[in-house]
């Protein structure tokens, strides 16, 4: 038996909106640690890892580890029916082939339940070791989204370079080229508006903008984003989910053959 009650139901709605473009079907894993997911996009270029820790739920019951295969578009359709202020409860029976999403309005005068069919999904799970990165850039998530959107109107790829001068996002296309440099600015009024660059070594990597733009669908989840870079390794674009966990996107770089 599984029963997870999330008072801030809008978080789950936002999580689904952030990943459904990248991944079609995925297994949600439920254990005593929390509600999690790891899935690759269909081309196996990017990977998303989600964790919602059990402590972040008002009520968290998971009698035994469960993996529930869901079509993310269908799940998003159901969660769209929840109000932004609704409490969402996820329920499933051990060995059952459905999951139920229950929505309660804040005043408890409207209670809905939506039952969704589960599916069997063969998925590969990748082991991602904790790594030391050459550079970690933390910046406002809206600024990062703006940069990715702006650059994708010029080119298809972005070169992200971190030096002690700052972080540079560059692209080139048929009509021309563009460079956007963000310098560290820790003296802003609000910490979430700061750009903080933690660099051990300069790093420069090339990525497909299409994926970066897809990751920025997670912008509503967090005011800030952190971008972890090491030469020749996938970038990690992380959006923290307040007091609950994170959505992390891993993207393989384009590498000279």
């Amino acid at each position: 038996m599984l029963e997870l009650r999330l008072v801030q139901g809008s978080l789950l709605k936002k999580v689904l909106e952030s990943i459904k473009e990248l991944v079609t079907d995925a297994n949600f894993d439920c254990s005593s640690t929390g509600f999690s997911l790891q899935a690759m996009d269909s081309s196996h270029v990017a990977l998303v890892a989600l964790l919602l820790r059990s402590e972040g739920f008002e009520h968290y019951r998971c009698d035994r580890n469960m993996s529930m295969g869901m079509n993310l578009n269908n799940m998003a359709k159901m969660l769209k029916c929840a109000g932004n202020d609704d409490i969402i409860t996820i329920k499933a029976d051990d060995g059952g082939d459905t999951v139920t999403f229950m929505f309660e309005s804040p005043t408890q005068d409207k209670i809905s339940d939506f039952e969704m069919k589960l599916m069997d999904i063969d998925s590969e799970h990748l082991g991602i070791p904790e790594a030391e990165y050459h550079a970690i850039v933390k910046m406002p998530s809206s600024e990062f989204a703006r940069i990715c959107r702006d650059l994708s109107s010029i080119g298809d790829t972005v070169v992200i370079s971190v030096t002690k001068e700052g972080v540079k996002f560059s692209t080139k296309g048929d009509i021309g080229s563009a460079n956007i440099v963000c310098r560290q600015n820790t003296s802003v009024d609000k910490p979430e508006e700061a750009t903080v660059i933690d660099m051990n070594e300069p790093v420069s990597l090339t990525f497909a903008l299409r994926y970066m733009n897809s990751f920025t669908k997670a912008t509503p989840l967090s005011n800030t984003v952190s971008i972890s870079l090491s030469n020749e390794l996938p970038v990690v674009v992380e959006y923290k989910i307040a007091e609950m966990g994170y959505v992390r996107f891993y993207l393989a770089p384009k590498i000279e053959e």
């Binding site: 690759m40 497909a208 393989a252 384009k254 053959e257």
Partner: peptide, 14 residues
């Protein structure tokens, strides 16, 4: 010319 790598080429399956 740069080629897109697969994410699977960086991590092992568990």
């Amino acid at each position: 010319n740069r080629n897109q790598k697969s994410i699977k080429s960086f991590y092992s399956t568990v």
